[in-house]
Design a binder for these strands. Structure first.
Lengths: 212, 212
DNA sequence: GAAATAGTGTCTCTTAGACACTATTTC
DNA sequence: GAAATAGTGTCTAAGAGACACTATTTC
């Protein structure tokens, strides 16, 4: 019977980059994802939620299992089997004590198995953002359309066309304009929006702009 | 340390329907997915491949992990943790001894946990068919465009437009026409095609037709 | 000829992407 | 006014979907 651990891949947009939360590196320069050992009769989702609370001090508003990982390499806990979960938190959340944000991909910083889990987790984010509002959970409750577009671009890993993005977004009825404007910064103030999907629509798509 | 089992969700197109392989039902009317217990130091992909060979007598040409499942309900093996894998085999493959094909969703036939795994597996198939040639591994080496379209429709769970499907397929350079025709059946003979993606293209999309 | 299945040509309407513009702020 | 950022109007090319058709078989 393999001992099993649960790894948490906590993602956020930090300073305009996609970053993942890792524990402060040990003297050998290696870091690790936050993890916990699984009990004999685990409830995986609950264990992931508990770990998230323990690390961040609060729950994530979007979490998903990434998969199970096992290979010849070692998990920090020594467990033969790792179950990875991915969670997202709002942009520029401050890292809890003993942890830090690292830009993805965190090459060379993590062990082989956790690096694989991270890579898979980022793919999971890309794949899921279409049907689930996870992008919006990576932004504050109020955001500008430029911020939203940047979030999409960082998760998708490619640039989007501004006019097309806004046109399709308007048609999708995912967001609602607020009567407030962002005043900081150089140029013209940007209007704030909030996530407010039109009710009664089934299977809402969250990727209004796509090209292939 | 939880005991872990590996479940196999083996899918095929059987008599024009999407079906999953289950063991023959016991006297109480319940069936189970093929499964195996995991050793202390498992290699998950290898274990899934071994189980596939043991059940089918041959390897699947496309396999993917679905995820880890654990809840209050019981796995047939008694394991607290299940890792599910999905595999596909060509259409109308005959079921091995002691097993049978069941149309999805196999409601009421499986236990709660395996039913959840099956549902997730079918979603995995839908999500992956875009970037991977898994549809083609569910067909014989030669197939007609009508068969291919039906395969897409069964996996996607919706009808596709014939003219659009063929137009987009031609543009995708995924298949190559053969100089052979299917002669059985009533109407005009259909030309055979084979999967032959144009080389040098990166990130080939396998869902040339889509609407949203 | 009727029925069944395969396969195609054309039209329309939608829309992604390009381009070029206007709008409003700070410096 | 220049620079920076936000936001929009219009054109075009591509393509999905509709429709109607042709093609080739069995009965």
């Amino acid at each position: 019977m393999p001992a099993a651990a649960l790894d948490l891949i906590c993602c956020a947009l930090i300073k305009g980059r996609l970053a993942v939360l890792v524990s402060d590196s040990s003297p050998d320069g290696r870091s690790a994802l936050p993890w916990t050992s699984l009990p004999t009769n685990p409830d995986l989702d609950a264990a992931a939620a508990r770990l998230t609370r323990a690390v961040l001090g609060r729950a994530s508003r979007w979490t998903s299992q990434v998969g199970a990982f096992a290979d010849a390499t070692k998990h920090p806990s020594g467990a033969a089997l790792s179950i990875a979960y991915v969670a997202v938190v709002p942009a520029n959340t401050t890292a809890p004590a003993g942890h830090g944000w690292v830009r993805t991909p965190a090459t060379g910083l993590l062990g082989v198995r956790q690096r694989t889990a991270l890579r898979t987790a980022l793919t999971t984010l890309r794949d899921r953002m279409d049907l689930e509002p996870l992008v919006f959970h990576m932004l504050p409750a109020q955001f500008t359309l430029s911020e939203l577009q940047t979030a999409y671009e960082l998760l998708l890993g490619r640039r989007l066309h501004k006019a097309s993005f806004r046109r399709a977004l308007a048609g999708s009825e995912l967001v609602e304009a607020r009567d407030e404007w962002r005043l900081e910064g150089r140029g013209r103030p940007a209007q704030f929006y909030r996530y407010h999907p039109r009710r009664g629509r089934r299977g809402i798509r969250h990727l209004p702009v796509i090209k292939w």
